[in-house]
Design a protein around this nucleic acid. Sequence first.
DNA 1: CCATTAAACACCC
DNA 2: GGGTGTTTAATGG
Length: 224
Amino acid sequence: MSKLAKLLAEATWTRGLTPEQRARVERDTFTRFVPKGAYIFHQGDRVDYWLGVIDGLCKMTKTGADGRVTTFVGIASGAWAGEGSLIRGRSRQYDGVTLRDSELAFLPRETFMLLLDSNLAFNRFIISQLNERLAQFIELAEFDRLREPDARVAHALASLFNPVLSPGTESVLEISQEEVANLAGLSRQRVNQALSLLQERGLLRIGHVGIKILDVEGLLRFEL
DNA sequence: CCATTAAACACCC
DNA sequence: GGGTGTTTAATGG
């Protein structure tokens, strides 16, 4: 079985498709290898595909007028993204960049719209995914405004393990501390300090360009 | 004051 | 050579 077939077989949203729809999806979807640090799409691009992460780690970022860059969210293995822009019919509102070598899947807009127009289960999946994302962004605002830096780091890491949004995340995250800093909106050395604390608490283990997550639940409810 | 960060530094995988 | 861990000086609440 190809990587794509495996991804489609394991994805929640393919379960409610008719055999014809499933065949159509398998026929229309293609995959591409994208090396670490490469752009998947740019802000302003037309949105022609729904993006699936077969195996990899990506980020959505935006560059401010003064050149500073912020990362909104990480997208991990098993995740599908970009339905927001597809449905709104708008151009990309941010840049997509790989954080490590990634295998990506592209489902054409036309196929996506066909499913949206004809399949109830698919609609339910999209609603639950959008809802999950909304909850995640509200949490992001909460942690950003109400919690200390250590909890922000813990939360940023735990967010990559959301079972609805990123069902296939491996427990070893191949991510630099620099990128964790971008995700959490903190400096690199503050993140380093936070990671050391989280490691002391037994929630994760720091490796070389990698973090082994030991306790996702513990990270989510981390308190000083 | 105290915490955070930018910049600069020396390891080392 | 990029990622990591640390120091130092500057900044801001």
